[in-house]
Amino acid sequence: MSSAQLYDTIGATYTATRRTEPRIAARVWAALGDARTVVNVGAGTGSYEPVDRDVAAVEPSALMRAQRPARAAPCVAAAAESLPFEDQSFDAAMAFATLHHWRDPVAGLREMRRVARRRVVVFTHDTSAAGWLDRFWLTRDYLPEAASLLVDRPSLSELAGAIEARVEPVPIPWDCADGFFEAYWRRPEAYLDERVRRGMSVWTKVGPDAEQRAVRSLRDDLASGRWAERNRDLVGLDTAELGLRLLVG
């Protein structure tokens, strides 16, 4: 299933759960530096597009494009691997939490490099490090099937190398406003909410059997206190390091 087909299927409630997290947005916008023109690749509903710059958006899903607010940047239908722009058309190119849906992430990053004169900024996940599955209790204890989604995907070093980028860790605040997969690391009850899960592509990709088994197990462990016992070290944390990364090249 292509990224466009995926989000045409699951994206109907996206704007309700996937809002801009201002602390992460500040990191992305700071990384753009003094770029005045920016292309946002895999733009979705536009939640991380800077409002003080001239932005063009690229989004393959018709459903996601339809949910972009009236004030959002103009958006074209295209894939990251074949951007419909001339070389060095923009000061910078950005992509937020979208690389894992691209058919060929390295090719997409090279396209971003082609159309950007100064800077490429990408928010993504490091799923190539040893033990990544155990970093997050949800994949470790309830959804090991997530590992199968990453077979043959490029490593973080390969992604960074495609745009000669430095890698910066991005901690997740406990009250993160953007409902991506790891966002509720200190609010486990949120994963029992069907609407919240529908804003996370992982659940659709692993399939309904794995999803319902994980939800049942989590619900039981929350009721019994087992989750709290296993994860008591999380209660006092304001942020968590769960492998989110910013590539700046």
Rank of each mutant, 00 (worst) to 15 (best):
Ala165Glu: 04
Leu247Trp: 00
Glu59Ser: 08
Leu247Thr: 02
Ala78Pro: 14
Cys75Val: 12
Val170Glu: 03
Asp178Ile: 02
Ala146Cys: 15
Arg195His: 11
Val121Glu: 00
Glu111Ile: 00
Pro50Asp: 12
Arg27Phe: 00
Gln67Trp: 11
Glu168Thr: 13
Tyr48His: 07
Arg53Val: 07
Ile24Lys: 05
Ser201Gly: 08
Met200His: 04
Gly44Ala: 12
Trp132Met: 11
Ser82Asp: 15
Leu192Cys: 05
Arg232Asp: 13
Glu145Ala: 15
Phe181Glu: 07
Ser47Asn: 13
Glu211Cys: 11
Val120Arg: 00
Leu138Asp: 08
Ala93Tyr: 01
Ala177Thr: 09
Arg36His: 14
Arg27Ser: 01
Gly108Thr: 04
Ser155His: 04
Ala12Trp: 03
Val121Gln: 00
Glu145Gly: 09
Leu218Ile: 11
His100Arg: 00
Leu237Asn: 10
Ala80Leu: 10
Ser61Met: 14
Gly33Ile: 00
Ser128Ala: 09
Pro50Ala: 08
Asp34Arg: 10
Glu164Ile: 00
Ile24Ser: 06
Tyr14Cys: 00
Pro74Glu: 07
Arg103Ile: 03
Ala129Tyr: 04
Met94Cys: 11
Gly179Gln: 11
Val55Pro: 12
Leu159Cys: 02
Ala129Arg: 13
Leu32Ser: 09
Arg186Leu: 02
Ala190Gln: 11
Trp29Ala: 02
Arg195Ile: 10
Leu150Met: 09
Pro84Trp: 05
Ser201Ile: 14
Asn231Ile: 13
Gly108Lys: 01
Ser2Phe: 03
Ala129Phe: 06
Glu111Trp: 01
Gly44Asn: 13
Ala16His: 09
Thr45Asp: 10
Ala92Trp: 04
Ala107Asp: 04
Ala97Leu: 01
Leu156Ser: 08
Leu32His: 09
